[in-house]
Design a protein around this nucleic acid. Structure first.
Lengths: 185, 185
DNA sequence: TCGGCCATGTAACACGTTACATGATTCT
DNA sequence: AGAATCATGTAACGTGTTACATGGCCGA
């Protein structure tokens, strides 16, 4: 239910095409809400039908035409309404945790490589977030309300990745102790 | 794709009915993978059809019959196969974060109550996890491999809730500073 | 008597994923 | 020559959510 609202927020920050939105959902907005281009196109069409967004066809030379979407007043109203109503806190979904518990009935040592792979992915994400923070929110900068809100969300992503890295180290230590492979890296 | 494997893990830990599984998905397993009873019944029927689980009808007096499921050898094999193949790390989905960024185009102060509500939910979850830890993993206890793995997963849940609480405090401070409502708590 | 728990299910719909399709441009 | 990027889409399928349905027991 939040995808349309995430799109509204993104389009309010900056109008753009479905393709551009899909790229933003790989960065920025995607830090806390993911979507593929197929989902985005589908929802954009529905939002256009409902009058939440407006389209402007932008011809480009040497490239396919671009449909630039922007938020129409009813879309802005819909976003405000949604902001005012409560949403349930999401629960985590972590298939690696399922695997860890499943390892009791399989091969715990076999999970070490998988856990290390996850650790690398999260380390990369953290590095990306930290680079973004340095770039967009340098110390001693005067920030407006929107930037402060963006920054606090980014700090959430950073905290999440740091916590996850620590936990994965804990998992690795636990798996190594079980498997009798005492080499810590 | 992980629901069937989460069910296999849960049934290996302890055979049970669809209803009992649904209750476990509200606790324990549900700390890192959620499912409603409708999903569970649907998947159980498919798993039974594929020979992954076996059913035993248990008549009960004064209550509806119970279908007690347990893992059959092909199910055990399927779980082992899944454990050996890589899964992609999940991305976070946090609609509150969407709201926070959306607040730049709405009413930031209006989000304070919502954020406090989320904070309470996470504080309760943390308390529940900590109580479970004290109950199931007391210090100085000898733990077998399965228990150690369960414990490290629970520690992940605890770390997640602690991190989230800290972040929500950060969010609240940010929102209060924006709104000019300097009352902390 | 009323709500909650035990126990299973159907139906309809929304959301998310994967595969496929097209076609020009730009970079290596 | 081949791969990546820009740009939009269809089709099929699988997963997740919501509403509804049944029916007896137990405790307040």
């Amino acid at each position: 239910m939040a995808l349309e609202h995430a799109i509204l927020v993104s389009l309010l920050e900056q109008p753009g095409s479905g393709y551009e939105l899909a790229r933003r959902f790989d960065r920025s907005i995607g830090y806390f809400w993911t979507a593929t281009h197929q989902q985005i196109y589908r929802v954009l069409r529905r939002m256009e039908r409902d009058g939440w967004v407006e389209v402007r066809d932008v011809p480009q030379d040497g490239r396919p035409d671009k449909k630039v979407y922007s938020v129409a007043p009813p879309g802005h109203t819909a976003l405000s309404d949604w902001l005012a109503e409560p949403v349930e806190p999401e629960s985590v979904r972590h298939s690696l945790a399922v695997k860890i518990r499943g390892a009791a009935f399989g091969d715990p040592a076999g999970l070490i490589a998988e856990t290390e792979r996850h650790r690398e992915v999260h380390a990369e994400r953290l590095a990306r977030y930290l680079a973004g923070e340095q770039r967009d929110f340098p110390e001693s900068a005067e920030l407006d309300a929107g930037q402060r809100l963006q920054h606090v969300v980014l700090r959430g992503g950073i905290a999440y990745e740091r916590m996850t890295l620590d936990w994965l180290d804990d998992v690795l230590a636990t798996l190594r102790r079980l498997g009798g492979a005492p080499e810590p890296h």
